[in-house]
């Protein structure tokens, strides 16, 4: 009795480690000419699996919200000053 070997094509493929869409992006976006050696800033940002990129993004958002708060605060100041000015005029009259 002859044993027909299973065609090798059907051999179980290695478990897929990442979704297919990622490979599409990999092929498109890895081919950037990598000409320069990593500079100091890159060495910091790329350490520990690029977690510092996330930190930078969160800090940018944080800074933006604080800047917004300062602007609103300044607006309130102006409004208060206007009310104060008119108040002092009232007492003079």
């Amino acid at each position: 009795m002859t044993v027909h070997p299973l065609h090798t094509d059907d051999a179980p493929s290695p478990p897929q480690e990442r979704p297919d869409t990622a490979s599409a992006y990999d092929s498109t976006w890895t081919e950037q000419p990598n000409t320069q050696p990593p500079d100091d800033l890159e060495q910091v940002m790329l350490a520990d699996g690029k977690i510092y990129v996330v930190l930078a993004v969160v800090l940018i958002i944080w800074a933006g919200l604080i800047a917004l708060m300062v602007r609103t605060d300044r607006r309130i100041d102006r409004l208060e000053r206007r009310i104060d000015d008119t108040g002092s005029e009232d007492t003079r009259q």
């Binding site: 976006w29 950037q32 000419p33 990598n34 000409t35 320069q36 050696p37 990593p38 890159e42 940002m45 790329l46 690029k50 510092y52 990129v53 930078a56 993004v57 940018i60």
Partner: peptide, 11 residues
């Protein structure tokens, strides 16, 4: 910032 340090490292 994300792209600069992820897909465009070294450029």
């Amino acid at each position: 910032v994300w792209a600069r340090f992820t897909w465009y490292v070294g450029t």
